[in-house]
Every structure is written in C-alpha cells, then in structure tokens.
Nucleic acid binder design. Sequence first.
RNA 1: CGGGGUGUAGCGCAGUCGGCUAGCGCGCUGCGUUUGGGACGCAGAGGUCGGCGGUUCGAGUCCGCCCACCCCGACCA
Length: 477
Amino acid sequence: MEKKLPTRQENFSEWYNQLVLRAELADYAPVRGCMVVRPYGWALWENIQKALDDRFKATGHVNAAFPLLIPQSFMTKEKEHVEGFSPELAVVTHGGGEKLEEPLVVRPTSETIIGTMYAKWIQSYRDLPVLINQWANVVRWEMRTKLFLRTLEFYWQEGHTAHATEQEALEETERMLQVYADFARTEGAVPVIPGRKSESEKFAGAVNTYSIEAMMGDTKALQSGTSHFLGQNFAKAFDIKFLDEGNQLQYCWTTSWGVSTRFIGAIIMTHGDDQGLVLPPRLAPIQVVIVPIYRKNEEKSAVMEAVSAVQAQLKDLRVKVDEREGLTPGFKFNDWELKGVPLRIEIGPKDVQNGTVALSRRDIPGRDGKSFLPMAGLDSAVPALLQTIQDNLLAKATAFRDSHIFEVTDYESFKQVVAEQGWAYAWWSDDRENEARIKEETKATLRIYASDPNLGEGVCFYSGRKTNQKAYFARSY
RNA sequence: CGGGGUGUAGCGCAGUCGGCUAGCGCGCUGCGUUUGGGACGCAGAGGUCGGCGGUUCGAGUCCGCCCACCCCGACCA
C-alpha cells in the first residue's frame, strides 16, 4: 500500500476510489457492483439520516416500511415507469425451492407498491394528504458502478405523498426540493443549485422532476437529490381515488422524493483534498480527535489527565481520543486527516505545562490551520471553531463552483467550457433532439433549468431561437 | 454487450531462456528502543502462483479453454 493517495490532479477517479477504501467508508463486496458500507461510512450516513429525518418530521411526514419484493405485474402498470426501469430490474423467480407463479422484482423504487397501498387506504378527502417516508435499500442493475455513486444496491429514503389537489402536490414537490437544498448546504456544506430537469432526464413516470445539482472537485455535476411531481400518472395506474367535498370521485395527485448514499460521494468529492477526506463538522462521525503526546510514563499520566479534562469539557461533541500505543503522533495526524476529522487537538507535555492545547483545522492544511488555546474555555471555543470550519467549507465550495460556471452564447465556447472548464450556463430553447445531439457530441447533459423567473429574453446558444429560459449544462456522474 | 488491461501472501508488485528451497515493499504477530508531522532494530507468521486441461524429465513461466475483476464507451439516484 502506497503511503500517499494519488492526487486529484493526477487521477481524480483513482483518488476517489482509494480514498473511499482507505478512509474505511466502504469496501467492495463479493458481488460485482455491490458495496459494504463500513462502520465509519455508516456513521456518516446515520448523521445524514438524522438531519434529513428531523426535517421530514418538521414538515409533517411520518415513517413507515414497505416490502422489498414487488409483484412483477405492478411494475408494468405505469407505461413510462416500466420502460424506464425494466432494463435494470433484479427478478426473483424461485422461492422455497419452487418456481414462483408470478416473479417478484426487487424494488428499484417503491412507487408501485406504495401506490397500491394508498389506493386501499385513501377513500375520502379527509384521508388526505398522506405524507409517508421510508428508509430503505433498493436494487438497480447498473452496468457501470462506482462506490457510493452508483452501486447495484443502495440505501436511501423515499418520500411518497398523495394530495387532493394539483396545487398541493406541486407545493409538496417544491417544499421537499427546498428541504434537500437546505440540508445539503447547512449540513453537508455542499452548495447545490435546485431546479427542474429536462424531459429526457426526468424520472420514469413523473410529470416533472426537480433536483439539487452539486459541482464536484473535478467540476463534474452530481445529482444529489430529487423531487418528483407525479401528477395523476400513478394515481390512475394504481387507482388512487378519493371522494371530494362535493361527493365527486377524483384521482389523487402524488409526489415522490429521495436522497441516497450517493450524498456521501457528494461530500467526498466536494470537500476532499489530496490528504484525504474533509468532513463537514455537522455530519462528521468524529468532530474532534484528541491526540495525546508523551515520551515517558511520567509524562503519559500527566498528559492523559489533561486529555480527560478536555474531553469532559467537550462532552456535547463527538470526540475521539486516540489512545493507540506504538504509533507516532505524526502517523496519527496523517491517519485522522485521511479520515477527514474536522478538528484535531494535540495535548503534550508542553501543553500540560502551559495549560494550553494545540488545535489543527482540517479545512486549512499546515501551519495556517494551527492555533494554540488555553484549556480553560474550550467548551465554548471548540464549538465556535467547528462552526467556523463548517462555514468555511461552504464558502470555499461555493467559490469553487462559481468560478467554474461560465455563461456562453455560442456552441464553440460551450464545447470548450464543458470539456475543460466546468459548467456552461446559457440561454436555451427547449428541443429534445438538440439536447440529445449536444450530449452525443460533448458528453454534457442539461442538468437543470434556471429557476429565476425574471430572466427576460435571449437567444438560444444552440438553435439561435428566441427563448425566455436558461439552463445549466455539464458532464456528470 | 464492444475496445483495452490485470490475475503470484491481507495490500502493492518482481519473478530473465521453462530448472532445483517462489521473492521484495507495506501491513500483521512478539520483544526492545522510540513518540510535537507517516520511527527503528531483532525474531516470526502468512502462498492450492485465478480455475481446468495439455506439452515436458521438470510449468508461476509455454499452449488451449474457462472464470473473475479493473479501465474506456452505450443506461442511471
């Protein structure tokens, strides 16, 4: 094993793969395309879950659990949904040693089974809205996989809601998009742009799909969360109906929305550097690591006493004391930097003598990120510093993103931008064929439309037609 | 599924013209010395050389078939 990671400059993809393995976030499973999420990675996911779940509860949602196996026939009821998902379904054909009457698919998403249950549960406008979320794993048989970003099986949450009116369902779709955007920025320090997807990029069966788009360290885009307005498509396919106040039978309006373990990939590729992970304090499994430094046993007892005192002061934070014997402090520094711990506190004989500790910020490498503080008062100084780090990560990522988005007005500069510089932002007159041609020629896809309603009017960079719409284009994961 | 590549210790690799006991680095175990930016010494453990078949006195090495994985392209949270 090499001591150092490949640099992001050298080989971004290899940097990512090795980082995930070495930081012990995940490992390859025996089955191609599957991964094992290791305890450190899962702890990060748990913090993501908590932050999201609190937001779901705060917006009136409740959790439930629906089955992993879905009758195959359910998948065929919504036309676009079948077409979108059939190529990537895992199908169970045998159970208990017998061939099944009807094959079962392993859920790639749960619209069909949840829709079936909603049809049963919803009778009246008084039953609406239904606002249910589930935390689950799903399976999609992808051709090319990459740890966290695209695996055959992944973990996510999927919210499924049913409403009496189109307006309410649209509001829900938008509300959850904003919940995701707020989550990504506030918790992950990932500056995302929310917006609507194009016709060709939307979810199979949706009327409209919205997503939060993030820029990774190599300037590629990553769709980091999605919210779908499903109209009455699934309600009609699954017969989700209710009697309104006027005793009229009506179809419901439904939505669905999800964030997956892919978000871990977003964190890695947004903040990570050539030393390793850089985790945002609010989500980091370990927010502060304390490295004791001592030579002789006499020093050790004094140092460990100081360590305990500091640890007690920081009891409200996620703190780890690295008590491993036989490793040098230098090794431990590198190790925790690889793992992305936001703040390191070093306590040695000199500190004990001076009543101080040395602090080292993960977001600012080297000497510039070091400071020395008195032990007294760490209980307020450290949380404040963590918040500073959190803010700095968002600011840095935002500055990086903004300096890699270029407004273009012609196809030549568009091609150059998406090939070498980042995202292109341009006037765009909607045209499915043009969009496909651009993808074919440049590998860049339409990520989202600009959501600013006061754009005015301009000329499409590709077709030359007049338009009142702008869009972001980029190569993406 | 097309194009390229790799399978030798947990990981990364070397192994010449086929040759006798299969090696190196990291990691791992034990003991000792170390410890403020990836410590060092000594002693150890660890291998059906991806699988099957063939050629040969002799195969990690040559031949054939198969398998797996990785990278690049067509689908996707």
